[in-house]
Design a protein around this nucleic acid. Structure first.
Lengths: 198, 198
DNA sequence: GCACCAACCAAACAGTTGCTTGGTAGAGTA
DNA sequence: TACTCTACCAAGCAACTGTTTGGTTGGTGC
């Protein structure tokens, strides 16, 4: 057996990054272990020296990413900021996550729903609920304290923000025309003030 | 040969609808012809009496949907409305399209990028450019005429609107808590006036 | 010189994939 | 009765899938 949970050789990390790029570009199911091996310059069987299965690769990619994200979210939610500032910080953290973990975010967006049907990926459902609770807490607080308008449905507002932010992974490219911070600025401007003239 | 381009038996349409639901739920690549046949209560080989290939199924689903959508968009753009009204109508048409063609929209969102690499799906790239031109025309006109604020990047604004609207297919369900019109109302409210208190 | 080890190769496996072929049941028609 | 057509079955094909197995390579420590 190759992967023991604490193993983290540089080659292993390299292979995982290659797999993540391919999963993100073509989808988990459509990416074969031979695709990954080809991109890495080895034979498909050699991947199994580093990983138990193709599933364990995507598992590690997604769970590592989510653990990091929740750590950052937690830091915001336990802070003394008001709802408006928390919301802004959550949005900025999210765009930064897209910048730093683009493949992982893309895989989550495209394949998580199907993967979550498997018991192995139970944590995807759990984390989804936790994620939702975090955002809804800030939104509800914002409405209660008057930081956000109170004539909209909170659930639809949550979905609007969530989708708007994370779907940007479909076109955002590090080193592209706009930095993650610039995108976050403009998106927050539209989100909070709207597109109409002031 | 089975499909002659004008063939449109009810059984054929039925099979196409079944395929569309499966493609939307699991992805084009991950859906097998046996999955489709099982769902239809026939054997996989029998599908080839109605369709040339699995690809021709998704081709017909996507091209039919896009043709209908462009027809509706055209009606708006050639009208005498001002930019603000055109924008509202485009958004409402789009949500209605999600309502009426949910599987097709989902397939487009999830699989179009990969399919477009194939020459057969050249029209996906062409239509994408046409789509972009249509929306950008309205956005630019809105900024020029003062209907939209002028301190934002038009390209990012376009992406914001586009993504915000179409990604709703991931969670919208006909007959669910909110109708397509209700979602459109709330999304337009956020889009145009923002989440902040007035 | 020897043992050890991570990384990889070469070859194969059983199952799945999209698709083809030749045939058949049943309804409509003349 | 004979013909035609739509819709389907039954069986199989070659290619591809994730994974396993036993063996090889080149480097490191002693």
């Amino acid at each position: 057996m190759a992967s023991n949970g604490t193993n983290a050789s540089s080659r292993r990390a390299e292979l995982l990054a290659i797999a993540a790029e391919l999963f993100a570009a073509r989808g988990f199911r459509a990416t074969t272990v031979r695709d990954i091996a080809d991109a890495a310059g080895i034979l498909s069987g050699s991947l199994y020296h580093h990983f138990d299965s193709k599933e364990s690769m995507v598992d590690e990619i997604l769970s590592t990413f989510q653990a990091g994200l929740f750590e950052e979210y937690d830091a915001v939610l336990t802070s003394a900021d008001d709802a408006r500032n928390k919301l802004e910080r959550l949005v900025r953290i999210s765009f930064d996550a897209i910048h730093r973990n683009r493949p992982a975010v893309a895989i989550f967006q495209n394949d998580a729903a199907v993967l979550a049907e498997d018991d192995r990926f139970d944590y995807l459902r759990t984390n989804n609920e936790r994620f939702r609770t975090m955002w809804m807490g800030v939104i509800d607080e914002g409405i209660r304290t008057g930081a956000l308008r109170d004539d909209l449905d909170p659930v639809l507002t949550y979905r609007f923000i969530r989708d708007t932010v994370w779907v940007a992974v479909a076109w955002y490219r590090p080193g592209g025309q706009f930095s993650a911070a610039e995108v976050a600025d403009q998106y927050l401007a539209i989100l909070l003030e709207g597109l109409g003239p002031r």
